[in-house]
């Protein structure tokens, strides 16, 4: 199901085209954000920031093969679109996860010394893991959207992100609760902690965003199944 050649090639692409550079620049913003966040540890906002970083990181790499037709010579070989998709995603995730762990741990070290806060030992594990999970989910979202939206790019991703962010600010809490309850009851059970946070109405804007994206990502996993219907090489 996974093409080793495509995974290897994707890793090579990420390293050689220096796509880690913009991630490094954005990570400076993350470090600064953490310094402020850590006064009231807000995992949700933190995860939202990781989403933004992952957007920049993953969209371009998944999209470029589709946009300029490189995919045509690949898919003329014994490789299905699903195989291409999953292998590409795996390549991005493997490099991205390493970068995120390094970034998160560096940020924690800097933060802990900068604000002189005694952090729970759990934080050292939870944050990098949360980062990786967020990265994986966003990679799947990006890859799925790149497949269905012609010309999908970083700009499109940021616009979609802004629309989603904007929409969440005007949706009343009760509506969000109703949607989550509906998904929980009829589509996909949510983790209890997630439901409780909604019920207690302690949900921050970024928290809503994180949970909404989590659900979209989980549902987007079905994407590869229907990807074979995509038309390629169209002028």
């Amino acid at each position: 199901m996974i093409s080793k050649a495509i995974v290897k090639n994707t890793i090579k692409e990420l390293l050689r085209t220096r796509q880690a550079v913009p991630i490094g620049i954005v990570s400076i913003g993350v470090v600064i954000a953490i310094v402020f966040i850590f006064k009231s540890v807000n995992y949700e906002l933190f995860s939202t920031i990781v989403f933004l970083i992952s957007v920049l990181f993953t969209v371009g790499i998944i999209d470029s093969d589709l946009a300029d037709g490189k995919i045509l010579t690949v898919l003329s070989k014994p490789v299905s679109y699903t195989q291409f998709f999953l292998s590409k995603v795996l390549g991005v995730i493997s490099v991205g996860s390493i970068i995120i762990v390094i970034m998160m741990l560096s940020a924690l070290i800097i933060t802990s010394s900068a604000v002189n806060v005694n952090m729970d030992i759990k934080v050292w594990f939870v944050l990098p893991i949360a980062g990786i999970i967020a990265h994986i989910l966003w990679t799947l979202i990006s890859a799925t959207l790149s497949t269905f939206i012609k010309g999908y790019s970083n700009i499109t991703a940021i616009i979609l992100f802004s629309i989603l962010f904007g929409a969440l600010t005007v949706i009343p809490n009760q509506t969000v609760h109703a949607i989550i309850e509906f998904i929980n009851n009829y589509i996909l059970p949510a983790p209890e902690a997630c439901l409780n946070s909604f019920k207690e109405s302690r949900v921050s804007l970024s928290g809503k965003l994180f949970h909404s994206l989590l659900y979209i990502a989980l549902l987007s996993i079905i994407g590869p199944v229907i990807l074979n219907h995509k038309e390629l090489g169209r002028k």
């Binding site: 692409e13 300029d68 490189k70 045509l72 014994p78 090489g233």
Partner: peptide, 21 residues
């Protein structure tokens, strides 16, 4: 049929390849 892909070759009109290789 994926099996026949091993027996074909394709040269596109506008060749686009991974430039970093």
């Amino acid at each position: 049929d994926m099996g026949i892909r091993a027996k074909i070759g394709y040269v596109p009109e506008n060749p686009a390849f991974h430039k970093f290789l």
